[in-house]
Amino acid sequence: MVNWKFWRRRPPARILRLRSRGDLGDATRVAFEELAPDATTFLGQAAYLQLGYFETLSRLIRATPDLDEKEALSLAAGAALVKHRAIVDVIRERGEVPSEIMRPFQAQLDEFRWATIGARPRETMLSVHITAGMLDDFYRTLAAEYGDTGRKVARILNVDSDRELIVDLIRATIEADDEMRSLLSMWARRLVGDTLLVARAALRPQRLGVDDEKKVEPVFTALMAAHARRMDALGLSS
């Protein structure tokens, strides 16, 4: 699990070692009440996360010479950018400045994003698929707390993320390379802890009490169930 203040990247190596550090379906709807952040925080985080997915995928496009991979990555990057711009439009409708709303979360979310970039392209593809899937689920759940603004964001996050071709690339690698299968399975498990930290950090209290933990437990249980389904679809164990 990544240390949010101190983390180091290991250089790539042929020996496959990890660096040191779907949706919620019919999950029970939880009223976060005082646990949910204010609407400005919610919008700023949701918008910047989508921009981060776009940036990570764009870097992968530039790094790969394979045209099929470029196509797969470009579709997913384009979908993330569309979502980002749509959430930015919601922010502007509220009379707020998008850059000012996102800026307080830039450093923290960049740290998370860089910590979940793998030493190899398939690890990074898996990172986007897993972390974006879990966090989109989480922010859709939070959206219920923000009235019409939340409904608009939920509709945006419900739009297809166009990651199917990326999933096909990951699945093909897993089927062809047992060593990579093992590596990606471990990498995905590590991503879960880091992603749950981001979700918890989005909630208003710095520390959740026992009663608060009970309120949010169904949501995190549902996030893990959806994650398990994504892993099963890839042919990996969660």
Rank of each mutant, 00 (worst) to 15 (best):
M134C: 01
K152P: 05
E175Q: 09
L208M: 09
S127V: 05
P104W: 08
E213F: 07
A115R: 11
L183S: 03
V210R: 11
P104I: 06
Y139F: 13
T131A: 12
M186F: 11
V97N: 13
F220I: 01
T124P: 08
V159S: 10
Q106F: 12
M180D: 08
K214S: 06
V88L: 09
L142M: 12
D211I: 09
F220Y: 12
L197M: 13
L135P: 09
V128K: 04
A226S: 14
A201Y: 05
E100S: 11
Y146H: 09
A199T: 06
L196C: 06
I117N: 03
K215R: 15
A226H: 02
D136W: 11
P104L: 05
P98Y: 07
G133P: 07
E179D: 15
G147D: 07
V153P: 02
R92C: 09
D178C: 00
D194H: 11
R171I: 00
E96W: 15
L109Q: 08
L183Y: 01
E123G: 07
T149L: 02
D160S: 11
T124M: 04
E100F: 12
A172C: 02
E217K: 12
A144K: 04
R189S: 08
D178P: 02
E100P: 00
Q206W: 11
L196Q: 07
T141E: 14
E217D: 11
E179H: 13
R122D: 12
M186I: 00
G193T: 11
G118E: 06
R140H: 00
V167L: 13
T131N: 13
R171K: 14
A154K: 11
I174Q: 00
T149Q: 06
V153L: 03
P205Q: 04
D89R: 13
D110A: 06
E164T: 12
F138T: 04
G118P: 08
